[in-house]
Structure formats: C-alpha cells, structure tokens
Amino acid sequence: MVWTVPHSDVMLKILGAPHQDDLVTSALRLTRALLDQDARVQVWTCGDATRLTSAALGADKPLDPADHRARHPSTAAVIGDLLAAHPERLHWYVCRFCAADRAAPEQIPGVRTRPPSRFWEHVRATDKVLALGVC
C-alpha cells in the first residue's frame, strides 16, 4: 500500500535556524499546546532547522565541564520524546535537500525525510500552515 501524508489540522513549517532566537522553543511550546487540544500536527523543517533532529546529535548535549554528572538532552532527544508520546497525532518531516545541504542527512528514528518536490502534498494534507522563521 502506498504511503500517503496523514492529514493534520496544523502544519508548522520551521525555517529559522537554531541558536539564533527562541523560535525552536516557541515551536515546541505551540506543538505541545496543539497536541493538548487533541489536534493533529505535522512539522516540516527546512534549512538549518533540519539539524534539530540530526542523528549526529545523539541523545545528549556535550557534557558541561562544570558539572560532569548532569545530562542535558539534545534537541533531537527532546523532539524524539515528543514524537514517542504522540505517535498518532504528531509527525515530523525534514526536507531531504536541506538536510543534505546542512550536513544532516541522517535523522533520528521517527522523523521522515522527504524530497522537496513532495512539499505541496504536505500542504494539501493540512487545514492550515504556520510558517515560522526564515532561512
């Protein structure tokens, strides 16, 4: 059976780069709030945002030299946990071109890499799109 994009109530299209402002934090807050209201959510990342779920990040941020005992989750782990908590209603997609261009071709389990030519299928599969940030 051919896979088709599951329908969603909202698509969050994230283009902005991590580590520049609180865009990623806002996107995660909004995603969680939408899920809490039983919405179906898909996230599509482009540009540097594709690195948020890069497999190369591993589960943890680099160690804090001031406190070796503390573990801090990577963005990939934070997002992976959110996906695991809402497997039916949250779907995370990464633009394959941007991921390759930003040296993040390998993504964490649960994230689907998509060719940019399929982007409009995702838009047609949602009731509305909120585009966050610019490249």
Binding site: P18, H19, Q20, D21, D22, V24, T25, L28, K61, P62, D64, P65, D67, A70, H72, P73, T75, V78
Partner: peptide
C-alpha cells in the same frame, strides 16, 4: 539575547563568558 533556550540549556552566552 535569548539565542535558543532549548538548544543551549546550560550553555548560554553568559556561561561561555564565565568559561
């Protein structure tokens, strides 16, 4: 300011100043 709360966690810009 506020250059990625989730991304930085402990390693904000003032943390690096202290380092």
């Amino acid at each position: 300011a506020h250059r990625g709360a989730v991304e930085t966690q402990f390693s904000d810009e003032l943390y690096f100043v202290r380092a």
